[in-house]
Design a protein around this nucleic acid. Sequence first.
DNA 1: CTGTTAGCGCTTTCAA
DNA 2: TTGAAAGCGCTAACAG
Lengths: 344, 344
Amino acid sequence: MSIQAVAAKAGVSVATVSRAFNFPDKVTPATRELVERVARELNYLPNASARTLRTQRSRVLGVVLPTLLNPTFAECLQGIARAAVAGGYAIIPVTTGYRLDEEERAVHLLLAGNVDGLILVVSNPSTSTTLPRLRANGVPYVLAYNRHPDHPCVSVDSEGAVADAVTRLVLLGHRRIAMVSGTLAASDRAQQRYRGYQKGMSDAGLDAPPLIEVPFVETAVDALSQHLQASSRPTALVCSNDLLAIRSIRAAHLSGLSVPDDLSVVGFDGIALGEDLTPALTTIAQPNSDIGRHSVELLIQAMAGGTTLQADASLLLPHAFRDGESCASARERQHPQEEDAAAS
Amino acid sequence: MSIQAVAAKAGVSVATVSRAFNFPDKVTPATRELVERVARELNYLPNASARTLRTQRSRVLGVVLPTLLNPTFAECLQGIARAAVAGGYAIIPVTTGYRLDEEERAVHLLLAGNVDGLILVVSNPSTSTTLPRLRANGVPYVLAYNRHPDHPCVSVDSEGAVADAVTRLVLLGHRRIAMVSGTLAASDRAQQRYRGYQKGMSDAGLDAPPLIEVPFVETAVDALSQHLQASSRPTALVCSNDLLAIRSIRAAHLSGLSVPDDLSVVGFDGIALGEDLTPALTTIAQPNSDIGRHSVELLIQAMAGGTTLQADASLLLPHAFRDGESCASARERQHPQEEDAAAS
DNA sequence: CTGTTAGCGCTTTCAA
DNA sequence: TTGAAAGCGCTAACAG
């Protein structure tokens, strides 16, 4: 079913049919209605590829993200999807599993797929090899969750957020506060969050114990359990993401510790599910859906202006400390001299 | 950067360049290498729209699903994404929020977007208006999770699975077993699972109490709490999905009931997160990723043969009862005469 | 093995 | 306001 068929049946030229669809005011109401009626009768749908070929605009956005198995990115993608539809764009998501080679492959795939722009969550903007290429090629793109002075980013102040969270824990009387993270090298977010932790500890005049790094999902709970059974185990855990927080709570349980009575746990991300858990997850909530939405809007806006996005277009969205039930005042234990702000 | 440019620089015809890419054996090794080198130098990427326009194949699959906020579908989409890439296809996902009008809109959008085939999770294949249209238009499609004798479906035996789960609960000594579901009318899965529950209860010679229907996510926990505070509250809950199971556990907690001591909870879906929860979720696990993968493979296979899929291509994948910690033997309470299989 | 060329369906000048 | 026609980049006959 082509524009030719519609034109023939309506007794007008293909140009008129095209105009009737794309510039309704450039044809008389009569012809417009005629064309619309015939098109409907013929069940006509404009051919996207032909239009793209001609206009050099596909109205498709590529989305590169680590995984859909972390609800954070699923929520973000949902936000992207809604905003894209609203803006008249389709999206093609590709997951990378946090692997650099997959990031390259994904970008290559999408570029070959004729996307007009890209939204990406990369491991680390500084070490990414694809970002310079995108810029060199003049492909509009925006980073989500990443934060970097040289790239357009939509993110939150992870560092400040975690520092604040540490401060809260300190106010609750915690002194032995440890941080739990996935592979630190695998993501700039993890690094920023860790820096925030270090800052918070330092601000409180506390020594930061070594980072608890749990690289493998499969062994995370076991690894965490080890740490929780140590003699001077932490009384509070700041986790680099909600999934780790959930696993920490499980590790605590397996170690005979109760959350929050024996161990406080703070997550990061604000996945919706966290609110329905028992204990409800205390977490630093990012506006995941909004991060997606704003990324799309920024990108579409830039593309409408025929430009790429620059670093100064970056957006820092507000985060929120979401109070749950996985955090409580520290109970004094083997270090009674440290008790002060307990009000349990 | 077009094929023309490559041809010119390499001193060959566009046809040769095209062949070098699409049928490497149809050109001499020398010319192939020449073309490849020049293409690389020029950073050439074949134009997908032009190819699609010419071949009438876009190598894009449309995916219609209710939401990405339920990890079940996120896991499935991840499976779809991987299989699609492996098969040389891109995917365009669209979410519908379980709304029929959105399902129509989504299909329309994707068809207009030139997809070669569709994978969809619809509310109800029987009442869907878009499915007949797809078939009439000869568009290859496959349903995921849905189950219907007239359509190609990739699913599990929900009914049997739930019936089995009920049987297990009965063997654990439970008698007052209730089912929790979202809006029953909104999904054929929910209906099938409910039928399985009814069958399980009937097989055990038990009266099935009225379905606990919690239509709204926001008020689900409150609604569930109501039911759990009733005088003759159930000792076990069979939930139509894992999200509801998680909320049921929360409702139990808020009602002062402990899971599994006071209340057993069984979910459905097998979201990965369930294993990390405390208590670990007992659930009927579907192979979500595989459902996605098989859907893609079925579709690609059919399209390769130039045909659409028929109902007899349907796949019934195995489910698994995943034992967790949210289920235990019934403790006798106000009905001591009912005690029998307790071994707690 | 390689080249020439028509044409996929559409938008967009340019004329009428 | 409408139409004729070129051409986006590619593939696939067909010819050589």
